[in-house]
Amino acid sequence: MMTQYRVIFDDPDALDEPTKVLVPSDRWMKEAMEGNLPPISVYWELQDDEQQAIAEGRHSEFKHDPEKLAAQYTAPRIGPLTEQEALEYLIMKDLPRKCWAEEHNRPMFKIVTVDQVPSDRTFRNAWEMAA
């Protein structure tokens, strides 16, 4: 399937930067809708471990715990998702966590259709997300 959706978002740590556009992979969306994904917590644990290594200045020697890494493939699958659910899962997996897990005084991300994304970058760079 070819998804017609995109996720536009601002990084709360870099609000001066242009709005970013996330393009889901068709192959990943197919896997999600066929029920082949592990619980999202598998990816969060890996992200937490790596972020801690970065914060402690030991990223260059960092290796994932083999059991946590293997859980990507061995954890029980969560079952088929709808397209909307797959996009919500992808947001929680691939967007900076601050975008969706913390409260802000304006939206930090939106799901839009591809035809709502201007192809001219001059317009896109002038965007500001509204409620």
């Binding site: 242009p18 970013k20 556009v21 992979s25 990943w28």
Partner: peptide, 13 residues
């Protein structure tokens, strides 16, 4: 097309 890539994010030019 891709393999083992869940998304691409356009970060700027």
């Amino acid at each position: 097309d891709s393999f083992n890539v869940s998304s691409l994010t356009d970060l700027g030019v």
